[in-house]
């Protein structure tokens, strides 16, 4: 379970949002760019600090403005896949995925890793560098890297925007099926209505929160 209630002013934007996602749900944050969707998931990951509110991951308070709780990103145990996937270019697929695993996990992790690689169709690619992968392969590698540590929540920022449109539809189906086996809250940011239709089990709408705009309306 993921609970979010945050507010933040940011370069002329005003973000003010409250929602929650249950385990196994795929919540799609849907809205125009600049409405604070990315900011929201970056706040959950601990990469941005909201001005006010709280964030609770799996019954653990990781952020609370009034109590001064602010758990650093490295201790939040979230899986985060940014829009450009941000694979480590100097590491192979396997090195990328193993990067976040602890020592004990690394020893028996090889078997699990092989199984995961074949499940997403990356077998045979484990020793390739990111630049040798297609867009879809990059995305799946980044997804495995985010999931390799058994995170308490998975955050995906525009996961399909960097792949060609024909591949996108196939990928959506694959990823949705794959994610169903993970019983954690999944938050997906998008402005593509197709993503919403195929992926969402829950929709959280974001509106344009330009400060100037709301001032005009007031």
């Amino acid at each position: 379970m993921l609970k979010v209630k945050i507010a933040k002013s940011f370069q002329g934007f005003q973000l003010n949002t409250e929602w929650e996602v249950k385990n196994g749900e795929i919540a799609v944050l849907f809205g125009p760019s600049g409405s604070g969707k990315s900011l929201s998931i970056r706040s959950i990951a601990g990469l941005e600090k909201p001005d006010q509110g709280f964030i609770e991951i799996d019954q653990r308070l990781v952020f609370e403005s009034q109590k001064g709780v602010d758990v650093p990103a490295r201790e939040r145990n979230v899986g985060y896949v940014p829009q450009n996937y941000a694979l480590f270019p100097h590491m192979t697929v396997v090195e990328n995925i193993m990067f976040g695993m602890g020592k004990s996990y690394k020893e028996n992790g090889r078997v699990i890793l092989q199984e995961l690689l074949s499940r997403v169709g990356l077998e045979g690619k484990q020793n390739k560098y990111p630049r040798q992968l297609s867009g879809g392969e990059k995305q799946r590698a980044a997804l495995l890297r985010a999931l390799a540590r058994n995170p308490r929540v998975l955050l995906l920022d525009e996961p399909f925007s960097a792949v060609d449109i024909p591949v996108r539809n196939i990928l959506r189906d694959e990823i949705r099926t794959f994610l169903k086996t993970w019983h954690i809250p999944i938050v997906l940011v998008t402005h593509d209505p197709q993503d919403l239709e195929v992926m969402a089990t829950k929709v959280i709408e974001y509106r344009d929160n330009l400060l100037t705009l709301s001032n005009c309306q007031a």
Binding site: L47, A73, F99
Partner: peptide, 9 residues
């Protein structure tokens, strides 16, 4: 890449 590494502990 640095941000992802942060989330990876």
């Amino acid at each position: 890449t640095e941000d992802v590494a942060r989330t990876l502990g």
